[in-house]
């Protein structure tokens, strides 16, 4: 079903998506929020720029955006796939527990905060360009990958692969950064290492999937140094308290 988003509010758009069959094409999106919130069993393509909280609580639906997306992409996402061909705003994948977010360009501040995993539910977020500050704060599970690829639409390609304060309070999951991470300051409770062996095998699988979405060459991307960051404790604050 084709949905012309022009002059439609988010409520109407979501009603139309619910009414439509499995396949759904939205054209002319212009900042409407909450598109596909909580939805499952739909394949949605979006032309134009969707607004904040795209795919919040997403529960298995697949969303593909050709252009940019705004803040809070995949907030508290449980399952499904969100693919964004451009850049995304702040707070993407907040507390996501499952599914995948693939972004071709850059992510803003606070991406992947409090991502978590449970058994077979392992969320994956791959950022093709750079990520802003506070990446993976409180990360409790899942996998965050930042590739640092040259991004034509970015303001600046000279900077570091990630901004300030990545992994603060991280206590689960993994972060892969396609960089030697020289000059990036990590907090004390994480282990920062050169990715090899099993880590690279895992990465290869996800990067393969990512490259298929965007028609990129996985071998070229993988032919680089990756840094892997893991927490050194699942209980980072255990020693801080005394019973009173």
């Amino acid at each position: 079903m084709l949905i012309d988003a022009k002059e439609l509010g988010y409520k109407e758009i979501n009603e139309k998506i619910r009414e439509s069959g499995k396949e759904c094409e939205i054209v002319g999106a212009l900042g409407q929020r909450f598109i596909a919130a909580g939805m499952s069993g739909k394949t949605i393509s979006i032309d134009g720029v969707p607004g904040n909280a795209l795919g919040a609580y997403l529960n298995g639906a697949s969303i593909k955006v050709k252009a940019n997306a705004q803040d809070a992409v995949g907030d508290t996402m449980n399952d499904g796939l969100i693919v964004v061909g451009g850049n995304i705003g702040d707070a993407a994948g907040y507390a996501m527990r499952g599914g995948k977010i693939f972004v071709k360009g850059d992510a803003g501040y606070r991406a992947g905060i409090h991502m978590k995993a449970y058994k077979e539910k392992i969320p994956v977020m791959i950022i093709g360009g750079r990520a802003g500050s506070f990446l993976g704060e409180y990360q409790a599970g899942g996998i965050i990958v930042v590739l640092g690829l040259k991004n034509e639409s970015a303001h600046d390609n000279s900077g570091k692969i990630v901004g300030y304060f990545p992994c603060t309070g991280m206590h689960g999951g993994k972060m892969y950064l396609r960089s030697d991470c020289e000059g990036i300051k990590f907090p004390g409770q994480v282990n920062v290492a050169h990715a090899k062996g099993k880590d690279l095998d895992e990465l290869k699988e996800y990067i393969g999937e990512y490259c298929e979405e965007f028609g990129l060459n996985a071998d070229e991307i993988l032919d680089a140094d990756f840094t892997v960051v893991t927490p050194d404790s699942k209980n980072p604050y255990k020693q801080m308290y005394v019973a009173n």
């Binding site: 904040n52 707070a91 527990r97 978590k116 699942k234 209980n235 980072p236």
Partner: peptide, 27 residues
């Protein structure tokens, strides 16, 4: 809770997607 056994369940002080009334409205 859908988190692994033995892992601390940390609820951050703020909701990191809410820094204003406008953000609250969004949630």
């Amino acid at each position: 809770r859908m988190i692994p056994e033995g892992s601390d369940a940390i609820s951050p002080a703020p909701h990191h997607d809410i820094y204003s009334i406008e953000d609250l409205r969004q949630l």
